[in-house]
Design a protein around this nucleic acid. Structure first.
Lengths: 219, 219
DNA sequence: ACATAAAATGACCCATCGGTAATATACCGG
DNA sequence: CCGGTATATTACCGATGGGTCATTTTATGT
């Protein structure tokens, strides 16, 4: 029943500013909902709680959304758009496969440290209506494919070691998704520090580099 | 209402072999429960469904478990023990930090491809009672620490590149946890192939190796 | 066979929660 | 000042599902 310090109940507070636009209220609902969903789990967060956190009662929410499903989906949709914006931006650039892969990792890390960005990963697909679930699944697939594409490109252009792009992509997205489960804005690491560390570990690995297998002089 | 092909309703089937030991029935309940929990989500799986899948009615389960919480926790506990067994085994060996880290990755990958092993990762902590949650959280922490310990050891003995063990550990466990979300025993990759690929990608990275900064002869 | 205990069942209780309806209140243009 | 619209509220409905209980069924030891 607490912990959403940063998220104000703005649009309602007292009686005055009530003339706020519809869109802003929808947005406020979503921001509060996603916060509570992430904090307590979707199915353990009732709409009454979301409403109460906004100084409103449950039926008021139904002026803006048709169902809890729709609220959840809108949260996921916002997250989806953040991922897709990053991917589209990077796809338009040019550079080696490895360079673009680095950019993808940084972009993904940025998104997954934000509330809406975590929706795609932390919430269960099956909570959504079939149509919404299909939409989100498609989005996840596109994200996976973005990684695989750049990995394959990198292998082709010689910047990335030959490997199975699918598995390599799973390693990367898995590691990045994990961030959503432990990251806290109050923690010791900034988003950029995390992104850099992940890029470094995923790209360069953990083992100490030995000289390439022969070809060069010996001891 | 399907998909648990491999899990038989053994101990009850018809009227005959009913003289099965209590322990075997508890085990059967857990195997079926974890299967359904993973397939449909914990809170969307009613005990009535679990019971029905075993050709029994819901109250029968209460002869063996006190609550749904307890069933869920027992599943997690079995998973926990699998991780801990692997970790204890590896801790007792000797070898460089890197070698032991490799072994840890393989061990973890094996466990997370099994039903009980997925419990720690796929189920939400908050579904459990406070005591159970504390137990599981402790277990996760110990697992994280096992990885960090070997990474630190590897840095000390020169087998692993200097880096922050905590973040490096998160990269590894995150990537491994991801396996639980996409692995299927019917898929194209065997558990061993997955484990090998993950070891390789995490240890050696993705970038093509350039010769170490100098020290050796150049062109 | 029969008594006894274990195991399983059908019927039921109750809390929670998504969603709806009828009603009240504030805001707007005319 | 009025009437219509949007927005919010109180009260309620119905479904779901965890958990309990009295009762019956089944297995076992003598």
């Amino acid at each position: 029943m607490d912990g959403q310090a940063g998220v104000a109940a703005e649009p309602w507070i007292p009686f005055e500013d009530r003339r706020r636009a519809r869109g802003r209220k929808k947005e406020a609902v979503l921001r509060m909902a996603v916060r509570l969903f992430l904090e307590n789990g979707v199915h353990r967060t009732s709409l009454a709680e979301v409403a109460a956190a906004l100084n409103v009662t449950k039926p008021a929410l139904y002026n803006y959304f048709r169902s809890k499903d729709e609220i959840l989906f809108e949260c996921c949709r916002l997250g989806r758009e953040m991922y897709e914006a990053g991917i589209a931006d990077i796809a338009a650039r040019n550079g080696s496969g490895l360079e673009k892969l680095r950019a993808l990792i940084r972009s993904y890390a940025k998104v997954i440290t934000q509330d809406f960005g975590q929706c795609l990963v932390r919430f269960d697909d099956r909570e959504l209506s079939p149509a919404a679930r299909a939409d989100i699944r498609r989005a996840k697939r596109r994200i996976d494919e973005a990684f695989r594409t750049e990995i394959a490109r990198g292998i082709a252009d010689g910047s990335i070691r030959p490997c199975e792009p699918k598995v390599a992509g799973f390693v990367i997205t898995g590691a990045l998704n994990g961030i959503g489960t432990w990251y806290s804005p109050d923690g010791p690491l900034s988003v950029d520090e995390i992104a850099d560390a992940f890029v470094e570990r995923l790209v360069d690995g953990l083992a100490v580099r030995r000289a390439p297998a022969a070809k060069q002089a010996g001891p």
